[in-house]
Amino acid sequence: MTLEILNTKEQLRNLIDDYAYLSDEKKISEVVNLFTPDVVYKAYMGDFLAGNVSGRENMEKEFNVHASHVKTYFTLNGQHSVKINGNMATGISFTQIKMIRETGGKDVLSDYSVKYDDKYVFQEGKWLIKERIGYFVIVEARELKN
């Protein structure tokens, strides 16, 4: 494995970690800048297509609406494997996402186990996500006892 490949893998890992960090902090305008202007983002809950957005502007609107309903996000990234082909790459990553929302005056924790299938492209001197498909494999919600 060449130094260039190792460097690219690190940059791609940093990209998905930045997505998690910025999302947790609800820095949506910075999150969408991790994507290409023509991004396609889909989210499946089981077999149901729960989200389908394209373009940064639409993504920012959708993400802001979602974030407005969430009190706290906490994301933990796990495995991340990539295949690099010049200025393009594909990747699979696994993530645990926890979200706290208020429902009926009570805090409810939603716990998501997610597999992301990504397509990346190197543009303007940096790697960006061109397509992201999130498969929410396990979803659990429970009331928090404060």
Rank of each mutant, 00 (worst) to 15 (best):
E4V: 09
I5K: 14
I5F: 01
K9W: 00
Q11E: 13
Q11A: 15
L12C: 05
L12G: 06
R13A: 10
R13H: 09
N14W: 02
I16Q: 09
D18Q: 14
Y19G: 09
A20Q: 05
L22I: 11
D24E: 06
E25N: 12
K27H: 11
K27I: 04
S29Q: 13
V32F: 03
V32R: 10
V32A: 10
D38N: 15
D38R: 10
V40K: 15
K42N: 13
G46C: 10
D47P: 08
D47C: 05
L49Q: 12
A50Y: 05
V53C: 05
V53F: 06
S54H: 10
E57Q: 14
E57H: 10
N58R: 12
F63T: 02
V65E: 10
H66A: 13
S68R: 12
S68L: 07
S68V: 10
H69D: 03
H69S: 15
H69Y: 10
V70A: 07
K71P: 00
T72K: 15
Y73T: 05
F74L: 11
F74T: 06
T75F: 01
T75Y: 01
L76C: 08
L76W: 01
N77P: 01
N77V: 04
H80D: 01
S81K: 13
V82A: 11
K83Y: 01
K83M: 03
I84D: 02
I84S: 03
N87A: 12
N87T: 12
M88A: 11
A89H: 04
T90V: 11
S93Y: 03
S93H: 08
F94S: 05
T95L: 07
I100W: 01
I100A: 07
R101N: 12
E102A: 09
T103Q: 14
G105V: 07
K106Q: 10
D107I: 03
Y112T: 02
Y112M: 10
S113W: 01
S113F: 00
K115R: 14
K115S: 05
D117Y: 08
D117H: 13
Y120N: 06
Y120S: 05
V121I: 11
V121R: 10
E124C: 06
E124Q: 15
W127K: 08
W127Y: 04
W127E: 05
L128V: 06
L128Q: 12
I129P: 01
I129D: 04
I129M: 14
K130W: 00
K130L: 09
I133W: 00
G134A: 15
F136P: 00
F136N: 14
V137S: 11
